[in-house]
Design a protein around this nucleic acid. Structure first.
Length: 673
RNA sequence: GCCAGCGUAGCUCAACGGUAGAGCACCGCUUUUGUAAAGCGGGGGUUGCGGGUUCAAAUCCCACCGCUGGCUCCA
């Protein structure tokens, strides 16, 4: 006997055996046609799976339910794997192929081990085969097999990866049987659920082919990953593709070029951005703003060199622990101290220097230069410090992943008692930065060490303490966060503020890190009230993270349309003909005198062309001036995103703009008339 | 670093074995312009770099550099 509670509150009784499909048919044939899967007691199941006895909540998933999309995509991944096997033959091994539901670009992928990796141009062939499989309307049959039988089956099929996956299921979950899904000539190890048959797969597109290491480890073989997307109808898929295309227009690499913000020149080197005049304005605005916040919060500004002795980075641990991601050291040849002529040309390592990968050792030297009393603490040393890291070539990405970048760095030296307050203060600053700029869509990641890894310095007891400190702070900040193992810095755990770029890729911006280890390695001290030396704790923090990455994200966030205070050009003066150039110069000068960044467009173009030019540059305000404006000492104001907002006295327009700029985006200068 | 794709004028792209082209931008002339592109003319390229195949290479092959999408990494 089976009793099903339906979502509308009604219930239905059945004699066994019954499947969800039968229930759907019973309710209405149209529903049965639209049904993709069912949810029994909150768990998604196939339409064809026999329902268990007893009383259950029951819901059918149709193509309109968001949950169905995941099932559709998962089934589409199976269809793709089947097609790949048909096209490329039985030598292809299929490994894992999940659905993606929160990825901006892709809807699923499948990783294959194939004798020769698939190429971009193969995707079309695979798609055509997939269409055939869809037309065949192959039913997906679920089978439960005992572990040994399943291993034997995949062994016979030459699917060694599946055998390995089953072994892991036994090892990790101690399962005695596994589920398989079979569709025509294809069978896969899979938890399910799936669509009832391949004919339910409607709109899909294969998007790209990439390499991916088996189990995500570079020790393992590189597999061929094919990404695709699937929807229940073509319209939804076209909208998806449209959405991705639109997002690409916000890409900071594109806008950086169009708006003349920065340049990455191969002549200078990959990952070494050059800030163009307009981009530099944005950076200076942000730096100036945060500098005033820092001085108000008791920070002291310092400046340190771009290189430091290798020996110092051995002490800090940077050199031994992160040797691979640094530019090679600058080694000095010291012929005098060479033991003999034979070794005279060998560099003497101890005399070498390192391009700094981090600012902390320099700041530590500043702390060490004086004695400190507990009364002095916390000492907060801040610097826009430029650091260099040898990032892997395949990782470089516009401004968001570079090899030379400037951190809005600071190191706070405090007593253990002060630590959590200091960390809280740093988190507040990060939130101020993100909030002011409207970057509200971020997540907080608490990065802990991975005890199994040997890439961390210091005493486990220090780590325990530091991790507990961070937990204490975040749990009282009212922020959602996730704790992630293996995401710590090598010297301590950290709180990271992570945002997404236009293509949905995550980037860490602000960071706050607790460090008991470097103070120990450098022997830092302060004198306590007990007249005994004590060891301070350090906080490393950067609210922007790096200026490069932050501005890269900011460009995408605003789509290049920066708020007035950040806009490289705040207004352009556009005379309707060169008869009014003289008045236009006066307008420009008045703006400049008031501290605004104003450009003059005296090109021999018609006014429409001028408007178009500066509109495309996303300049917030355009001042059109002609006979009337000259006569009345006014400007006709055109606002970005709107058309004309009216004619204003020159002085009033300038004053209103200054007010808007000072508000950092909180106020608008002109109400549309 | 690894897998796949790409690299042609300042920018966006065409030509895909047979003399390298367009639009925008730039320069000159005409027009003196009223809210998203006036007209005409001109200059500009050893097709990323280096080899090879061929009577002939932007085009085919090899190596290198760089970029893009992923993977790994990410202090």
């Amino acid at each position: 006997m089976l009793i099903l509670q339906l979502p509308d509150g009604s219930s239905k009784q059945y004699e066994q055996p019954v499947t969800a499909e039968k229930v759907a048919m019973d309710i209405s044939p149209r529903l049965a046609q639209a049904a993709m899967a069912a949810v029994v007691d909150g768990k998604k199941v196939d339409l064809t799976t026999p329902l268990p006895d007893g009383e259950h909540t029951f819901k059918l998933l149709t193509d309109r339910d968001a949950d169905s999309l995941e099932i559709l995509r998962h089934t589409t991944a199976h269809v793709m794997a089947q097609a790949v096997r048909r096209v490329f033959g039985k030598d292809v091994q299929y490994t894992i192929g999940p659905a993606l539901t929160d990825d901006f670009q892709y809807g699923f992928y499948y990783d294959f081990d194939m004798p020769t990796p698939a190429k971009q141009e193969d995707l079309e062939k695979i798609e055509q085969e997939m269409q055939k499989i869809v037309a065949e309307k192959l039913p997906l049959a679920r089978l439960e097999l005992p572990v040994e039988a399943a291993k034997q089956k995949f062994g016979q099929l030459g699917q060694a990866y599946k055998v390995e996956l089953i072994d892991d299921l036994v090892k990790d979950a101690n399962v005695s049987s596994v589920s398989l899904y079979e569709q025509g000539d294809f069978v896969d190890l899979c938890r399910g659920p799936h669509l009832p048959n391949t004919g339910k797969v409607k709109a899909f597109k294969l998007m790209s082919v990439a390499g991916a290491y088996w189990r995500g480890s570079e020790q393992n073989k590189m597999l061929t990953r094919i990404y695709g997307v699937a929807y229940f109808d073509k319209k939804a898929m076209d909208e998806h593709i449209q959405r991705v295309e639109q997002a690409k227009l916000r890409d900071h690499r594109l806008l950086g070029k169009q708006l003349g913000l920065f340049l990455i020149s191969d002549a200078v080197g990959p990952g070494l951005p050059l800030w163009l005049p307009r981009g530099t304005v944005i950076r200076h605005q942000l730096e100036g703003w945060i500098r005033s916040e820092l001085t108000a919060r008791g920070y002291q500004l310092v400046i340190t060199p771009h290189i430091g002795r290798l020996a110092m980075y051995r002490t800090s641990g940077h050199y031994p622990y992160y040797k691979d991601s640094q530019f090679p050291p600058i080694l000095m040849q010291d012929k005098e101290s060479a033991c003999c002529a034979e070794h005279a040309n060998e560099p003497v390592l101890e005399e070498g220097y390192l391009l700094k990968p981090m600012n902390c050792p320099h700041h530590i030297q500043i702390y060490k230069a004086n004695q400190h009393s507990y009364r002095d603490l916390p000492v907060r040393l801040a610097e826009f410090g430029t650091v260099y890291r040898m990032e892997q070539s395949g990782e470089l990405n516009g401004l968001t992943r570079v090899r030379g970048f400037t951190q809005d760095d600071a190191h706070l030296f405090c007593t253990p008692d002060q630590l959590e307050d200091e960390v809280r203060g740093c988190c507040d600053l990060v939130k101020l930065v993100l909030g002011t700029l409207g970057l509200t869509d971020y997540r907080v990641r608490v990065g802990m060490r991975d005890p199994a890894s040997d890439k961390y310095v210091g005493d486990p007891a220090n780590w325990e303490r530091a991790e507990q400190n961070l937990r204490n702070v975040v749990s009282h900040l009212g922020m959602n966060y996730s704790e992630e193992k293996g995401e710590a810095a090598f010297y301590g755990p950290k709180i990271d503020f992570v945002v997404r770029d236009c293509l949905g890729r995550e980037w860490q911006l602000g960071t706050v890190q607790v460090d008991y280890n470097l103070p120990e390695r450098f022997g830092l001290e302060y004198m306590g009230s007990d007249n005994q030396p004590h060891r301070p704790v350090m906080v490393h923090r950067a609210p922007f993270g790096s200026m490069e990455r932050f501005i890269g994200i900011l460009i995408e966030h605003f789509g290049g349309a920066f708020p007035l205070w950040l806009s490289p050009v705040q207004a352009a003066v556009l005379p309707v003909s060169d008869k009014f150039n003289e008045y236009a110069i006066k307008v420009q000068q008045a703006g400049k005198d008031a501290g605004l960044r104003v450009e003059l467009d005296d090109a021999p173009d018609k006014i429409g062309a001028k408007i178009r030019r500066w509109t495309m540059q996303k300049v917030p305000y355009l001042f059109v001036v002609g006979q009337r404006e000259q006569d009345e000492q006014t400007v006709s104001v055109r606002q970005r995103g709107a058309a004309e907002v009216g004619t204003f006295k020159l002085d009033a327009a300038i004053a209103a703009m200054n007010e808007e700029a000072a508000s950092r985006g909180a106020k608008a200068a002109f109400a549309a008339t």
